[in-house]
């Protein structure tokens, strides 16, 4: 990582407890503009919790978060967004009764300020279109967004996040629900966003994708950053292997951690947790039977 890059996000010593469970212990990390930073770790490691702390949906018990050189630890979520932070969610949070373009439009209008929308009304339609093009939703603009399959709904969230013109983008498992070629397209998009100067922090279980596009990777396990570095460095680290294979580490609560059959699977071949995990986060992305 080039040291001259300004850090857009600095998380230092953040701790979060839920009842008796420590979801994060003194976690620290830094994200620089113009890079894709990976945040990986087994189920229940605390990745989503860290995203919630950064975006203001969860206040940390200790530690600080600073965005673009401003301490935001106790700032409300919408004010952080106005500083240039955008995110997507692991459990879908699309505006389901709005159409796909309206989802993006809300993002554009939110960032345009109260009166900004009037100035950009003329260009609004084309701005929405180009954002939808970018995430591969060209033809879906008029679709009610709750009618979309999971993978595409994630892309709606991504387009909406891009609409606010963020300097830092947090993506929580954007690749789940996408097939191979779709996730290749996603990888290319993220790389190009970084090339434009955006900072991307990516949580993803698709190791192949993470290893390919990330400049820097942090590995979180049981709320601790156990290792960080470039893709090759992380891939080879024995602690990472151990964390993923769960070598006798106590299982957390009722949520099984990835695969724990003890076979020597290399990190980058770890199966998609979607297929095997009983994690509720994944279940919840399938809305059948919910919310009826």
């Amino acid at each position: 990582m080039p040291p001259d890059d300004a850090a857009v996000l600095t998380v230092s010593e953040v701790g979060v407890r839920f009842g008796g469970v420590a979801a994060l212990n003194a976690t620290s990390l830094t994200v620089h503009s113009g890079t894709v930073t990976g945040l990986i770790g087994p189920n229940g490691a605390g990745k989503t919790t860290l995203f919630n702390v950064i975006s203001g949906l969860q206040s940390p018990d200790r530690g600080t978060v600073s965005l673009f050189d401003t301490d935001v630890t106790s700032m409300r979520p919408h004010l952080r967004a106005r500083l240039g932070l955008a995110r997507t969610f692991q459990r879908l949070e699309v505006f389901g009764s709005l159409t796909v373009s309206e989802n993006v439009q809300v993002g554009l209008e939110a960032s345009g300020g109260r009166w900004g929308r009037i100035g950009r009304r003329a260009g609004l339609g084309s701005t929405i279109e180009s954002l939808l093009d970018r995430v591969g939703l060209t033809e879906a603009g008029s679709e009610q967004s709750s009618n979309l399959p999971t993978g595409l709904a994630r892309m709606v969230e991504l387009a909406r996040a891009l609409a606010i013109g963020p300097r830092l983008l947090l993506l929580d498992e954007p690749g789940s629900g996408l097939d191979e070629s779709e996730s290749a397209a996603l990888g290319a998009l993220l790389t190009s966003l970084a090339a434009e100067g955006m900072a991307v922090l990516l949580v993803e279980h698709d190791m192949e994708l993470v290893m390919r596009i990330c400049d820097h990777i942090y590995v979180l396990d049981f709320g601790d950053i156990i290792c960080s570095g470039g893709p090759d460095q992380v891939k080879g680290d024995p602690r990472v292997q151990a964390a993923y294979l769960g070598d006798g580490a106590p299982s957390r609560g009722a949520l099984p951690r990835g695969e724990s059959n003890g076979s020597a699977t290399p990190v980058h071949q770890i199966p998609e947790p979607d297929a095997t995990s009983t994690d509720l986060g994944h279940l919840s992305t399938r809305p059948e039977g919910r919310g009826r």
Binding site: L57, V94, Q105, R160
Partner: peptide, 21 residues
């Protein structure tokens, strides 16, 4: 604009806040 905001708030308060509303 305000109507879209209302519906958005209804659908997902978390996303509503994190786009800056």
């Amino acid at each position: 604009y305000f109507g879209r905001r209302l519906v958005a708030l209804n659908d997902s308060p978390a996303a509503f806040a994190t786009v800056g509303l």
